[in-house]
Design a protein around this nucleic acid. Structure first.
Length: 505
RNA sequence: GCCCCCAUCGUCUAGUGGACCAGGACACCGGAUUCUCAGUCCGGCAGCCGGGGUUCGAAUCCCCGUGGGGGUACCA
């Protein structure tokens, strides 16, 4: 049974959902779920020019992928709807009227150009630029005249000119702002749309939000929100401002840092569990030395008080490592499900799998998953399981395939393997080692060229187990093909660089 | 410019006046594993931004500096 704790994730649907948004959503969710509270999803589309339905879709998609769910929202409704701000215009209107009636808000007829001029002037005079309040006390005649000029007003909140505004933030501690430093903020645009400040304060109040957990870039706005609440006689919620997530250059993570959208990471083959775990550890620590933590373990230990107030850099390298840990420890069946569509997309496996074929795929995955860090690399690293059409890597050519001894070894091995009546890792191993012994060379001298011939690469899982999963006839054919190409001198190293498909950058 | 915030290895972090010549993880480097490594195991490198206080004692508290970040919109 949910208690009175209510939090909200309130994205603006103006672009993609980036890591920072996901982080904020996640921390709201962690707080709500760990406290037995409710999570509200509210769409802040008051930027009527940039908001799109498409962006909203991406937000839903990102949240669902991460496993962050909500109890009330535009898609499922709830007792405090509507949950989309553009559908709440009349609600804001009522509050604005109250403010105007109480002379706490007023019409401002200044044009953007005039405002810019004001700011320039103040900057030039070395004083902090802010709205100078020139429309604060316009008479009815003034307003009529300005309207007659064709001007449409916006509405500003009359803020205090003296004193301090004190914010007691759960994460940031006490922060004090000087009231004299801010000008009267716009609360309703000329278009009639509310600005963020008005909408957020009204909605958090009406939706009975108890804890506002948002990024620290909103901390300076909080002084406006506190003043708005006072003017409206609204009890403020508790605030918790989360530190920012930075790019490698230590500036706020943004598009120019490369992959920053949650969907980018999903596409690269991040497991949602891994991203969830990694994001939870950005700005919060369980206080123990374990880092791989399940959802439940994180939930059990989470608290807002334990959140750090200093920003953190999003380290893709470490996130990738963590993802590898999750893939390694995941059930092979599960990983097979995730990897299957990628293989199908590449045309490496059929669209409809027989149960036997699926079982085979699970075995391949089981063999490979401990060395894969991103799902997206699976299809290239495991390519040779699915097709004969693979490249011989340069390292394989240089070290083994270009050797004059190799064709004979491969031919002999092919003959012997072809003769095997039972095809298993054991029988293959016995054959390979037997050949080495007979030739009086180390087993490695057979194993390596064999791997190169069968997989085109010098690295991979246990050769015998890998071969077991291939068709016997196929292996024999690959050995003979490589032997012939090698003998013909066609497997000399090329001047092309090997391009190991490491973590995508 | 002004306001606010932040400051422990390159990165994520533990640390809340004595248990810290600072612990873990990623990355990096080295060794092992002789069936390879991009896997695994073992080991190593590397940090309290600087300066002043307070205190018997400071990574921890205070001040100043420096550095970084955020804000300063009819964006959110």
């Amino acid at each position: 049974m949910p208690n009175a704790i209510r939090v909200r994730f309130a994205p603006a649907p103006t672009g993609y959902m980036h890591i920072g948004n996901a982080h904020t959503a996640l921390f709201n969710w962690l707080f709500a779920r760990s406290q037995g509270g409710s999570m509200v999803l509210r769409v802040e589309d008051t930027d009527e020019l940039r908001s799109t339905d498409e962006a909203l879709g991406v937000i839903y998609e990102g949240l669902r992928w991460l496993g962050v769910d909500w109890d009330e929202g535009p898609d499922i409704g709830g007792p405090y709807g509507p949950y989309v701000q553009s559908e709440r215009l009349d609600i804001y209107q009522a509050y604005v009227q109250r403010l105007i009636d109480a002379r706490q808000a007023y019409e401002c007829f200044c044009t953007p150009e005039e405002l810019e001029e004001q700011r320039e002037l103040m900057r030039a005079r070395g004083i902090p630029p802010k709205y100078d309040g020139r429309c604060r006390d316009l008479s009815q005649e003034d307003k009529q005249r300005l309207r007659a000029e064709g001007r449409e007003p916006c509405i500003r909140l009359r803020v205090k000119e003296t004193g301090k505004t004190i914010i007691n933030d759960i994460i940031q501690g006490q922060v004090v702002y000087d009231n004299a430093l801010i000008g009267d903020p716009v609360i309703v645009k000329t278009s009639g749309y509310p600005t963020y400040h008005l909408a957020v304060v009204v909605d958090d109040h009406l939706m009975q939000i108890t804890h506002v957990i948002r990024a620290v870039e909103h901390l300076p706005n909080t002084q406006i929100h506190l003043q708005l609440q006072e003017a409206l006689d609204i009890k403020p919620p508790q605030y918790a401002h989360l530190p920012l997530i930075l790019g490698e250059d230590r500036t706020k993570l943004s598009k120019r840092h490369g992959a920053v959208a949650v969907t980018d990471y999903a596409e690269q083959g991040f497991l949602p569990e891994a991203m969830f775990n990694f994001l939870a550890l950005l700005g919060w620590s369980p206080g123990s030395e374990e880092e791989i933590l399940s959802r439940q373990e994180i939930l059990d230990r989470f608290s807002l008080e334990a959140c750090s107030s200093s920003p953190s850099v999003f380290d893709v390298e470490k996130a990738t490592w963590m993802n590898g840990e999750y893939i390694t420890n995941a059930d092979a069946q599960h990983v097979a499900d995730l990897v299957l569509p990628l293989l199908q997309e590449e045309g490496l496996i059929e669209q409809d799998l027989t149960p036997q074929r699926r079982q085979w795929l699970v075995k391949v995955v089981d063999l490979m998953k401990s060395r894969v860090k991103l799902l997206s690399t699976f299809s290239s690293w495991a390519r040779y399981f699915f097709t004969d059409d693979f490249e011989y890597e340069n390292r394989a050519r240089r070290q083994w395939l270009n050797d004059s001894q190799t064709p004979a070894k491969l031919e002999t091995l092919a003959d012997r393997l072809e003769a095997l009546s039972e095809w298993s890792a054991d029988t293959i191993e016995t054959t390979v080692r037997g050949l080495a012994e007979q030739m009086d060379i180390k087993a490695a001298e057979v194993i390596h060229p064999c791997r190169a011939a069968v997989t085109g690469t010098t690295i991979g899982p246990s050769l015998f187990h890998l071969m077991e999963l291939l068709e016997q006839s196929d292996v024999v054919a690959r050995l003979r093909r490589a032997a012939q190409l090698s003998a013909a001198g066609e497997l000399a190293p090329t001047d092309q660089e090997d391009t190991p498909s490491g973590p995508a950058t």
